[in-house]
Lab assay of single mutants.
Amino acid sequence: TLFEALYDYEARTEDDLSFHKGEKFQILNSSEGDWWEVRSLTTGETGYIPSPYLAPV
Rank of each mutant, 00 (worst) to 15 (best):
T1R: 11
T1G: 12
T1D: 12
T1W: 13
T1E: 12
T1I: 13
T1S: 11
T1L: 13
L2Y: 10
L2S: 05
F3R: 03
F3M: 08
F3K: 01
F3S: 01
F3H: 05
F3P: 00
F3Q: 02
E4G: 02
E4M: 13
E4W: 10
A5L: 09
A5G: 02
A5V: 03
L6P: 03
L6A: 04
L6R: 07
L6F: 04
L6Y: 04
L6T: 06
L6I: 10
Y7E: 09
Y7R: 11
Y7D: 08
Y7Q: 09
D8Q: 04
D8H: 06
D8C: 09
Y9W: 08
Y9P: 01
Y9H: 07
Y9T: 01
E10V: 14
E10L: 11
A11H: 06
A11D: 02
A11N: 05
A11C: 06
A11E: 02
R12P: 11
R12V: 13
R12Q: 14
R12C: 13
T13Q: 11
T13P: 05
T13G: 15
E14Q: 11
E14I: 10
E14S: 13
E14R: 10
E14P: 13
E14M: 10
D15P: 05
D15S: 14
D15C: 15
D15M: 14
D15I: 12
D15L: 14
D16M: 14
D16Q: 15
D16W: 11
D16L: 11
D16R: 14
D16A: 15
D16H: 15
L17H: 03
L17N: 02
L17M: 14
L17K: 04
S18P: 05
S18C: 05
S18R: 04
S18G: 07
S18W: 05
F19I: 08
F19G: 01
F19W: 05
H20K: 15
H20T: 12
H20M: 12
H20Q: 12
H20L: 11
H20G: 08
H20E: 08
H20C: 11
H20P: 04
K21Y: 05
K21C: 07
K21I: 08
K21M: 08
K21R: 10
K21A: 10
G22D: 02
G22N: 04
G22Q: 02
E23W: 08
E23R: 00
E23V: 03
E23K: 00
K24A: 05
K24L: 15
K24N: 05
K24M: 13
K24R: 14
F25H: 00
F25Q: 00
F25V: 02
F25M: 03
F25W: 01
Q26N: 06
Q26V: 15
Q26P: 00
Q26A: 09
Q26H: 10
I27D: 00
I27S: 02
I27A: 04
I27P: 01
I27T: 03
I27M: 06
L28P: 00
L28M: 07
L28G: 01
N29C: 08
N29M: 07
N29Y: 07
N29P: 02
S30A: 13
S30E: 08
S30H: 09
S30M: 14
S30L: 09
S30Y: 12
S30N: 12
S31R: 09
S31M: 11
S31H: 09
E32K: 14
E32Q: 14
E32P: 09
G33V: 10
G33N: 11
G33D: 11
G33F: 09
G33Y: 09
G33C: 11
G33W: 10
G33P: 14
G33L: 10
G33T: 13
D34C: 15
D34M: 13
D34G: 12
D34Y: 15
D34T: 12
D34R: 08
D34H: 11
D34P: 09
W35C: 10
W35K: 10
W35P: 11
W35G: 03
W35Q: 07
W36N: 01
W36F: 06
W36C: 03
W36Q: 02
E37G: 04
E37Y: 15
E37I: 13
V38Q: 01
V38T: 01
V38K: 00
R39S: 04
S40A: 07
S40N: 13
S40G: 02
L41C: 13
L41Q: 06
L41D: 03
L41M: 12
L41Y: 06
L41N: 03
L41W: 06
T42L: 14
T42E: 14
T42H: 10
T42D: 10
T43S: 11
T43M: 01
T43L: 01
T43A: 01
T43D: 02
G44M: 07
G44F: 07
G44E: 04
G44P: 00
G44T: 02
E45I: 11
E45C: 13
E45Q: 14
E45V: 11
E45M: 14
E45S: 10
T46I: 13
T46A: 07
T46K: 09
T46G: 02
G47H: 06
G47C: 04
G47L: 05
G47S: 03
G47Y: 06
G47E: 00
Y48F: 13
Y48W: 15
Y48T: 08
Y48H: 08
Y48K: 13
Y48C: 09
I49K: 00
I49D: 00
I49A: 14
I49S: 02
I49M: 04
P50S: 08
P50I: 05
P50L: 13
P50D: 04
P50K: 12
P50N: 09
S51W: 15
S51H: 08
S51Y: 12
S51F: 10
P52Q: 15
Y53V: 06
Y53N: 05
Y53S: 07
Y53R: 02
Y53A: 14
Y53Q: 03
L54V: 10
L54F: 07
L54M: 07
L54K: 04
L54H: 03
A55F: 09
A55H: 10
A55G: 10
A55K: 13
A55T: 13
A55W: 09
P56A: 09
P56N: 05
P56E: 09
P56R: 05
P56C: 07
V57Y: 08
V57S: 08
V57G: 05
